[in-house]
Simulated assay, not measured.
Amino acid sequence: MLNLLSFLFGIVSLVIVIPATIPLLGWANWLALPLIAIGVVLGQLSSSNSGRNFNLIVLLIAAVRLTLGGGVI
């Protein structure tokens, strides 16, 4: 059950992160980061690692985009 919740948080976060790759929408990554963190914690608490790994991939995408844009842009 926790793994399913972790996937749901990851999918919602991915829906926010994908449009945030467009220039001048990088601020949306800051909205997605708390959701990603909750998804990682839920994935860690579950017996399966797939939800956690999915959230970590989404976190990597958001973090790379934030560093390329200087944290805001």
Rank of each mutant, 00 (worst) to 15 (best):
N3P: 13
N3L: 08
L4I: 08
L4S: 15
L5V: 11
S6L: 11
L8D: 10
L8R: 14
L8T: 13
F9Q: 03
G10T: 08
G10A: 10
I11C: 08
V12C: 13
V12T: 15
V12M: 15
S13G: 15
S13W: 07
L14W: 06
L14G: 02
L14K: 09
V15W: 15
V15L: 15
V15E: 14
V15I: 11
I16M: 15
I16Q: 11
I16F: 12
I16E: 08
V17A: 11
P19I: 08
A20S: 13
T21D: 07
T21L: 15
I22T: 13
I22Y: 12
L24H: 15
L25H: 03
W27M: 08
W27N: 13
W27I: 13
A28D: 07
N29D: 13
N29F: 02
W30R: 06
W30Q: 07
W30D: 07
A32L: 04
A32Y: 00
L33E: 05
L33I: 14
L33Q: 02
L33V: 13
L33R: 00
P34R: 00
P34H: 01
L35C: 09
I36S: 02
I36R: 03
A37W: 07
A37F: 12
G39W: 04
V40S: 01
V40C: 09
V41C: 00
G43A: 07
G43P: 03
Q44G: 08
Q44T: 14
L45Y: 08
L45M: 05
S46V: 01
S47H: 09
S47E: 11
S47W: 03
S47L: 05
S48P: 00
N49T: 12
S50M: 04
S50D: 09
R52T: 05
R52G: 04
R52V: 01
R52A: 02
N53T: 11
N53H: 06
N53M: 11
F54M: 05
F54R: 03
L56G: 04
I57C: 11
I57F: 14
I57E: 11
I57G: 13
L59C: 10
L59F: 12
L60C: 13
L60V: 10
I61T: 13
I61Y: 11
I61K: 04
